[in-house]
Simulated scan of single mutants.
Amino acid sequence: MHLVLITGMSGSGKSVALNALEDLGFYCVDNLPPELLLPLIKLERANEAGNLAIAMDVRSAASLPQVPSQLAQLKIQGVQVDCLFLDASTDTLMRRFSETRRRHPLSKTDTSQNINDQHRALAEAIELERELLSELRADAHVIDSSIIRPTQLQSYVKSFIDAPGEQLTLVFESFAFKRGVPNDADFVFDVRMLPNPHYEPGLRDLTGCDRPVIDFLQQQADVQTMLDQIHTFLDHWLEAMAHNHRSYVTVAIGCTGGQHRSVYLVEQLNTLFAPRWSTLKRHREMAARHPDQLGSEHVATRVV
C-alpha cells in the first residue's frame, strides 16, 4: 500500500492537492481524525487497496501528536508512507480568508469586532496553527503555495508522488527575489550578482532553458564559479543529510526575475546531481508567466 498524508496550513491548497491525487487514482479521504487512521489502513489493506491519500488538519489538533508514531508503525508494517505539507505566507493566508470570507478553524473572531481586531485574531490563529503543525511539517516534504497557481500546485504534487520514497530527493527551484523567497526552501542561493542576460537585447525575452542564454552564461567565469561552489557544497553534505533520514532537500536559486540565471543554474544542477540522486526541478516564475506555453518539464520534472 502507498499512503500519502497531506497536512498543512488552512487555506494553503490541501483540497487542490487531494484532487490531484484523486486524478492519479488514489482513494482520497479528507479531514480524517487521527484516531481513525490505523483502523482505516487495516480495512483498506484487507480490501487489497493500493493507493490511499488522507488529508488531516488542525481541526484534529488534540490528536495530531499521535500521528508521527502511527506513521512509524505503518512503515514497520510495510506501508509506503509519504508526507506532504502545504504552506503559505501569513499575508497570503490572511488574504485568502478575507477573499473567501471563511473563518479559520482556530479563529474565535466575533463578527461584532472591528476590522483591525478581526485581522489581529486571524493572524494569531494562523501563528497558533503553525505551532501546532510544526512537528508534522518537520518530517514532510513542504510545498509553498503562496504565489503559485492551482495548476502548478497540482503539477508539484504529481511529481512528488513519482519520486522514489526510499531515498533522498533533491528539489531544485528557481525563483525571483522580487516575488519573495519560497517558504519551502532548505537552502537559498542568491545569484543576482552574476551577469544578467536581461540586459542583452537578443536574450531578454528568452529563458535559461534556451540555447542562446545557455551559451551566454557558459561564457561567464563567475557563473561557472557559482555553479561549481554550489555543487561542491551540496555534494559534500548530501550524504550526511541522507544518513540523517532526510527525505527531501529543497535548494532554491534566486535572481531578479527568475527567468535567466536562476533557471540556468537549476537546469545545470539538476543535470549534475541526477545520475546519483532522485531530483525534481521547478521554475516558479516561468510557470506563472506562461502556464499554457510551458511543458511540464519546465514546471516540475522528476529525474531518477
Rank of each mutant, 00 (worst) to 15 (best):
P105M: 06
L269S: 04
S278H: 14
A49N: 14
E124D: 15
K75P: 04
M226N: 06
D210V: 03
D186W: 02
N47P: 00
A240P: 04
A240W: 08
R204T: 09
L36A: 03
V157W: 12
Q66Y: 08
L136N: 05
K281D: 08
F233E: 11
R130M: 08
L265C: 09
E173N: 03
E267L: 10
F97N: 05
I214E: 12
M56Q: 10
E239Y: 09
E44H: 13
L203G: 13
D23T: 04
E131W: 07
S98G: 06
T250L: 09
S262G: 05
R103P: 01
K178Q: 10
V223G: 09
H298L: 12
F189S: 07
H104Y: 03
L74K: 00
Y199W: 14
G180E: 04
R246D: 11
K108M: 12
R103D: 13
N31C: 12
F97Q: 06
D139F: 06
A242E: 15
R45Q: 15
V58K: 03
E173T: 13
Q229F: 12
F160K: 00
S174C: 03
I214F: 02
A53R: 01
H141G: 04
R179L: 12
G257K: 02
E135I: 02
D205A: 14
K75M: 09
D162R: 09
L153I: 00
L32V: 07
D228C: 13
A17V: 04
A242M: 11
P164L: 11
I253L: 08
L227R: 05
C209V: 10
